[in-house]
């Protein structure tokens, strides 16, 4: 915790313009880095507190999705409605902590699995992670996206364990309107972009009404539960190495709770450790855009376990993380005992 605070303080120092002296006329990247950090500081609040509507496209691997979104911040409360534009007719509506999800009557997008711990969980994040320590942020230019003037921020990793990121932020609000995840050669692995956008406080109430007919599922985000257990725990296993800067991330309780998520503030990976049951999984890495899935099997006390590392990290990093998992004998024996 102390370490985290120190890093946060460092990041803060880096981000405050004039925190260290800059001689007039001096050339170099420092001012650009400062400016980039100042922009990144705005990113988090902008995501929630800007009101906007538009359509965005997301592509990774061979998958492409587009979604229409309306997002309003009013009286301290976020209202949001997302409508799938292809592959089904689902929609998600959020009012503060209330989430209503209408499922497509058919199709591949199974939104019931997404709710409630997914998209709206960003409500749990309160601060910018100090990712300036592991990436070099630079203001690399200005552009126009979906009719808005934007600044482009490049985040180049300082080691080989991460991908580089490029963010396009709208000038007046800091809203993220486009992003790339790129590999070391500059190839774009993941692409997010608004194709149409209107930043406006004037969005009619009707835009936040459910319009699709279908089976409805309503859940409330259980913010108390999340607060009580903010950080995932590794129980029965240990991670002996992770790239510097990746710390266990606060996650809402989801799934079977066996995974632990790590984040460096920009990228994230999850580690799953499970005993091998009936299903045999292959060993090695698969990639879907910027997302790597690395799996390996490990036998402890004659009991096979599957270790899966999933994240927006290069395959080599995922393998190193998976190799660094060690399973406690006790846990292995415990599982064996349960089996017999």
């Amino acid at each position: 915790m102390v370490r985290g605070l120190t890093l946060l303080a460092l990041a803060y120092l880096l981000s405050v313009p004039g925190a260290y002296a800059q001689a007039p006329g001096e050339v170099g990247n420092a001012p650009q880095t400062e400016q980039a950090m100042a922009w990144l500081e705005r990113l988090g609040p902008a995501l929630n507190m800007t009101s906007y509507q538009g359509v965005f496209v997301y592509a990774r691997g061979d998958q492409v999705h587009s979604m229409r979104i309306a997002h309003r911040f009013r009286d301290g409360r976020v209202e949001e409605r997302l409508v799938m534009q292809d592959g089904g007719s689902g929609e998600i509506v959020r009012r503060g902590m209330n989430v209503v999800c209408v499922l497509p009557d058919q199709g591949r997008i199974r939104l019931d699995e997404v709710i409630p711990s997914g998209p709206f969980a960003e409500a749990f994040t309160s601060q910018l992670m100090p990712f300036g320590q592991w990436y070099l942020p630079e203001l690399v230019g200005e552009d126009r996206v979906a009719g808005y003037d934007v600044v482009t921020v490049a985040l180049t990793p300082k080691d080989e364990h991460r991908y580089s990121h490029r963010l396009w932020l709208e000038k007046s609000t800091g809203l993220l309107v486009k992003s790339h995840v790129r590999d070391v050669d500059g190839a774009v692995l993941e692409h997010f972009q608004f194709t149409s956008l209107e930043i406006t406080d004037d969005i009619p109430d009707a835009e936040f009404e459910i319009q699709t007919r279908g089976r409805e599922i309503t859940r409330s985000l259980d913010i108390e539960a999340a607060r009580q257990s903010p950080v995932g725990r590794m129980s029965g296993w240990t991670l002996n190495w992770q790239p510097e800067g990746f710390v266990p991330a606060a996650v809402p309780r989801s799934g079977k709770g066996k995974a632990v998520a790590f984040s460096d503030g920009l990228a994230a990976f999850s580690v799953f450790v499970e005993p091998v049951t009936g299903l045999k999984m292959p060993t090695g890495a698969s990639r879907i855009g910027a997302t790597t899935v690395y799996m390996r099997e490990l036998s402890v006390a004659d009991r096979p376990f599957l270790i899966a590392v999933v994240g927006e990290i290069p395959p080599g990093t995922a393998r190193k993380v998976a190799d660094a998992v060690s399973i406690d004998d006790e846990m292995a024996r415990g599982w064996s005992a349960r089996d017999h």
């Binding site: 988090g44 996650v251 994240g311």
Partner: peptide, 27 residues
């Protein structure tokens, strides 16, 4: 695995719409 990770990811990285997109993509 992809889905559970996407759920973590939307929290850990706090990227707003990108989080949604990853979730829908994973599901």
């Amino acid at each position: 695995y992809l889905l559970e990770h996407a759920q973590h990811n939307s929290v850990g990285a706090g990227r707003g719409s990108v989080g949604y997109a990853r979730l829908v993509s994973a599901s």
